[in-house]
Nucleic acid binder design. Structure first.
Length: 504
RNA sequence: GGCCCGUUCGUCUAGGGGUUAGGACGUUAGAUUUUCAUUCUAGAAACAGGGGUUCGAUUCCCCUACGGGCUACCA
């Protein structure tokens, strides 16, 4: 019980959920489930200025879509709540004050503006073990004056007092031994003037209180890890400190830096899990769900960006990933995102999925085009006919809409040049033929078609494409005789008649 | 600038002191498919550079280069 594996994903509700975040969720989840541990969702809403309405609900929806269920969260509760940091506000001040008392932190009265102007004047200004001697804080102001300032309610923050000339090191589960010189780390703010903790304080306090055993986060956190390590020590919790793992970043496909929302818009692919519309700017960012990814494919693709099981296998179900996941098989370097490969994963998942599994997704796609109330058996058989030609879910509409409605337009250039009266006659005869003949079986139908072509002395090859265009409208789709049998005798005849007119 | 992390085909990666450096996406060529896609076959394509260590380094060590991250009262 004491050594239970507990991990957390701790987003701040400031906007949409980026795929880097989803991958962090996934690795947390895989690790937790593999070890029969718990996965916790904690909302880090300590920055009221950046708080965005609806972001938390959105994150919860993303998790739901991915099929990842937190064991504890603001929604489901748990024994370590509350799970929103804004609701834990009272706790943090206590710990910050404790640190001040112990001499590990201090009050600082400098305003944002003052510090800002310092940064203007002094190049590479940093609030650190040197510069704090020159600034307005409880280290430079006499004790009584500090007390008075606080009593008067003077705005102040609490900063960590970084030691000088100390080596701070730890073992990262992915990178191994990592170390920093304390002189290079600034005196980070722990408690803000509004009484809210910064990430640095909150993450340590809550990881401790929530008994987190392993902390996985993006590599961008590596430089602030010495602050966190020290806090664990100063608060006297060193023995309970979680094991750290800093995950490699997901990078832009073409250039420099980590992948951002803008890259998606610029290069034309989603970066968020689900569509996100900023409630204030109304700016919209595409999500993988909405462009037609299967959640399994999405997760599979993300996992492979930095992880593999050591074999050539690339397609993994969530269950498989849970059993095979291992931290030491995570690549250290960042990965450039490749949308082409991402789509390949989705196509593979569609191809390998049973029609019954795909059914609800395909139904939804058709409903968007007002094709509703399709008999399930019929839709199932159509899914099987076209699934291997679909890459994204909306492709099912492109690839199968003609089963439900006659083509509105024809790829006329594909027929017209070779269209002639002999062919018209053939199709008219074919209609007569169909009216009398057997229509159950596509092989019989094909035989019929070919026999008639031979009788009329026209090459079958000359007739196949026109027939396809008649039924489908374009040069695509499954076997043409399969399509004909599927849509039925009536409809086939109608379409041929309509097309003969259109081809004139 | 400083600090930290990283570096195998265009991309995601496997490998690891002696290999024809493997796979996948993409790409090229061909086959199949009387549409397109699928499928199949074949091809081009990589160990950043320099020093060590070693009989032998792509693999271990160091340096350089390059890439990335951080450098807020944001997370």
């Amino acid at each position: 019980m004491e050594n239970k594996i507990r991990v957390r994903f701790a987003p701040s509700p400031t906007g949409g959920l980026h795929i880097g975040g989803v991958r962090t969720i996934l690795f947390n989840y895989l690790f937790a489930k593999q070890n029969k541990g718990e996965f916790i969702l904690r909302i880090e809403d300590t920055d009221q200025a950046r708080f965005v309405e609806g972001a938390e609900e959105y994150i919860v929806n993303c998790l739901k879509w991915c099929g990842i269920t937190p064991d504890e969260s603001p929604q489901v509760g748990g024994n370590f709540g509350p799970y929103r940091q804004s609701e834990r506000k009272a706790d943090y001040r206590k710990y910050a004050e404790e640190l001040v008392k112990a001499g590990y932190a201090y009050y600082a009265f400098d305003t944002t503006e003052e510090l800002e102007s310092k940064r203007q004047v002094i190049e590479n200004f940093r609030y650190d073990h040197q510069t704090r001697k020159l600034l307005r804080n409880s280290l430079t102001i006499p004790h009584e004056a500090v007390e008075n300032l606080i009593k008067e309610g003077a705005p102040h923050v609490i900063r960590i007092k970084m030691p000088s000339d100390e080596n701070i090191s730890f073992i990262d589960l992915i990178r191994g031994h990592v170390s920093f010189n304390s002189n290079e780390v600034d005196d980070k703010v722990l408690l803000k003037a509004d009484g809210m903790p910064t990430y640095h304080l909150a993450v340590v306090v809550d990881d401790y209180l929530m008994k987190i055993s392993h902390a996985f986060r993006g590599e961008e956190w590596l430089p602030s890890s010495p602050v966190h390590i020290l806090l664990w020590k100063y608060l006297g919790w060193e023995d309970d400190m979680p094991k750290w793992a800093h995950l490699p970043l997901i990078l832009k496909p073409d250039g420099h830096g980590k992948l951002s929302k803008r890259d998606g818009q610029r290069l034309g692919f989603p970066v968020y899990a689900i569509n996100w519309i900023d409630p204030i700017t109304k700016e919209k960012a595409d999500g993988f769900k909405d462009v037609g990814f299967l959640p399994e494919a999405f997760l599979n693709m993300l996992a492979m960006l930095g992880w593999n099981d050591g074999t050539d296998q690339e397609i993994f179900s969530l269950e498989e990933m849970i059993s095979k996941f291992s931290l030491d098989r995570i690549h250290k370097g960042g990965a450039k995102f490749d949308y082409e490969k991402a789509k390949w994963y989705n196509a593979e998942w569609i191809k390998r999925s049973d029609a019954s599994y795909l059914l609800p997704y395909v139904k939804e796609v058709f409903e968007k085009h007002e094709i509703v109330d399709i008999p399930e058996d019929y839709l199932l058989s159509i899914i099987d006919m076209v699934k291997e030609r679909c890459i994204l879910l909306p492709d099912f509409y492109e690839q199968a809409a003609f089963f439900f409605k006659a083509p509105q337009a024809y790829d006329i250039n594909a027929v017209k040049p070779k269209w002639n009266t002999e062919k018209v006659e053939f199709f008219e005869a074919f209609i007569q033929n169909l009216k009398l003949g057997n229509f159950e079986n596509s092989a019989v139908l094909e035989q019929n078609f070919k026999t008639l072509a031979t009788e009329k002395n026209i090459k079958v090859g000359e007739l196949m494409l026109p027939f396809r265009i008649m039924l489908v409208g374009g040069k695509f789709g499954p076997q043409v005789f399969d399509i004909a049998t599927k849509i039925g005798k009536e409809e086939t005849i109608n379409r041929i008649e309509k097309a003969i007119e259109a081809f004139k």
